[in-house]
């Protein structure tokens, strides 16, 4: 049988690479003793998720995932770590007294998730999205989803005010 390069399952290969990023990153987050490393593993994991969005033809979401999670939230998390902890600490203790309690809960959660994944019929469409997806999003935001759109704005201002309020106490404590 002659080698046919168009038969190389590129999508599957990319999928496995991205899954390796996402799951490997997630395992790294919980297993790394160093908080800073955990945060960087989180970035890797989120990057893998952005790859999924690309495979699902959701380019806008993929780029947003990169911009918001890697460009903004990861930085916020890193700042928060440096804000709260001593730097280069010799690693946190990864267990506390309640570890035995969390074990059965995690087991049950895992069982439930496996059950859900197996029972739900996932509607799959091989169709490519038509037209400019970002344009469609714009119409949806200010058309049928106008109220959620405005609620997002209120939610964001609440987050902004709340964040400033909480962090402000620390600033004042610093200055006093």
């Amino acid at each position: 049988m002659p080698f046919d390069p168009s038969q190389i399952p590129i999508v599957q290969i990319v999928f496995f690479v991205m899954t390796a990023c996402a799951i490997g990153g997630a395992i790294g987050v919980v297993s790394s003793p160093n908080l800073f490393h955990s945060a960087l593993y989180l970035v890797l994991s989120l990057f893998g998720v952005a790859g999924y969005y690309v495979l699902l033809s959701a380019g806008f979401l993929a780029v947003v995932q990169l911009m918001v999670y890697v460009g903004a939230i990861a930085i916020l998390i890193l700042f928060a770590i440096m804000f709260a902890r001593r730097l280069m600490g010799q690693g946190e203790n990864q267990n506390n007294q309640q570890w035995w309690l969390s074990l059965p809960i995690v087991m049950i959660l895992f069982a439930v998730l496996v059950g859900v994944v197996n029972t739900v019929s996932w509607p799959v469409s091989g169709a490519e999205p038509t037209g400019d997806t970002v344009m469609e999003l714009g119409h949806a935001f200010l058309g049928s989803y106008l109220i959620p759109f405005e609620v997002v704005s209120i939610l964001l201002s609440v987050a902004l005010i709340g964040g400033i309020f909480l962090a402000r106490e620390k600033v004042e404590a610093e200055e006093a």
Binding site: V43, F60, V63, V64, M67, V70, G71, I75, L78
Partner: peptide, 28 residues
């Protein structure tokens, strides 16, 4: 020719920010 090209340049710029933070922290 991404239909999100402008957003992409912002997103990739975020990686550069991350690199600076990594360099600053790891130098100790």
């Amino acid at each position: 020719d991404l239909n999100v090209g402008l957003l992409y340049i912002v997103a990739i710029g975020g990686l550069g920010t991350l690199a600076i933070l990594m360099a600053g922290w790891s130098s100790n």
